[in-house]
Design a protein around this nucleic acid. Sequence first.
DNA 1: CTTCGCCGTTCCGTTTACGGAACGCTGGCG
DNA 2: CGCCAGCGTTCCGTAAACGGAACGGCGAAG
Lengths: 199, 199
Amino acid sequence: MESPTPTPQAAREQPAREQPAREQAATDAGTVGARVRALREERGLSLSTLARLAGVGKATLSGLENGTRNPTLETLYAVTAQLGVPLTAALSGPAATPTVRGAAVSATLLEVFTEAGATYELYRMRVAPGVGQLSPAHQPGVTEHVTVFAGQLRAGPVDAPLTAGPGGHLRWTSDVPHGYAAIGDEEVWASLLLRYPRR
Amino acid sequence: MESPTPTPQAAREQPAREQPAREQAATDAGTVGARVRALREERGLSLSTLARLAGVGKATLSGLENGTRNPTLETLYAVTAQLGVPLTAALSGPAATPTVRGAAVSATLLEVFTEAGATYELYRMRVAPGVGQLSPAHQPGVTEHVTVFAGQLRAGPVDAPLTAGPGGHLRWTSDVPHGYAAIGDEEVWASLLLRYPRR
DNA sequence: CTTCGCCGTTCCGTTTACGGAACGCTGGCG
DNA sequence: CGCCAGCGTTCCGTAAACGGAACGGCGAAG
């Protein structure tokens, strides 16, 4: 349980799976196909018709829907565009928001902003009461900004933590080890903004 | 026009968006590649390292980032998974969400949180330079919380405005007339959190 | 019953995305 | 200096995704 942080790095810190794990790439192959098929049938379109409208081969669309092919981005876009939905609609279900979880912290990525000088990632974060969670240092210059909605949060560098209640705002540079913990027995709701300066 | 504020109600009143606003289709190969590259670089990873971690060839990742290849879903998934972001983060922002526009302010509703005592609405807000924008008073007890990502923002009650730069945070009670304006000629990017107490 | 049109799947040759192995470049070090 | 380690790009043979053209199945019309 040492995947500690709500940040994406948490995933990376898992040392490695050398195994090129391709079996689980099927995560999407079948699921995406089923979703595309559902979207098509909702509209009363036949496979042949959609293939023609989208400008792809029937074999391609058939294989895509059945999960027997591994579509390219171009193919997927041609199909979803013709269905009138954004590509993301085919990739993630109605409410399948991707979440990073740790011992105490559960964070959902809402937005990624890319600016000239920095990249921002905006998360909605929940911190469960009872246990704390530590995160190792990030790259130099990275800062974290937390706005608390509910509960009492203690967060920041391990040697100088900060606290905030509803409406409160915290900020620290996260190039040192830092942690998150809920004070009391109420779950903390907050937004977490990470700023990665361009290097 | 008289809907000056990014007030949430306006957004919610959109009854039905038949058309899932398409504008943000970041679906061409070049844009996706640039996003992946940004995500990689903000983590301080080299192309070679990421390719090895993700179990894809360097040639594949190079071509993907440069937009000279048309990646497979499997490839894209392997890379984004290793970056710790959902596939949708590389393809675009979150699915089309209602946007409220005014003279200077453009706000996109990201999330709505319903608590026992209050409702929160989280927006991504942009304030164009050159012109300001006023908003009439909200109901009593409503508070606004702004975190600035980029630019210099002046906002708050018209008779006592506050200012903040990148990383800065503003808070005021919005049951009085208040306004937003960018200082200088740089567009302001910020997150806006509105808190509506239960009545 | 036969014919027709359209359905979704399968076959097949072509195109191309794939990974591994080069390549040239740069920066650190003895 | 040369050497080396790591960077990102390019080359190349292979695997597979591609579109077009078959195929069998099924309901409606003749």
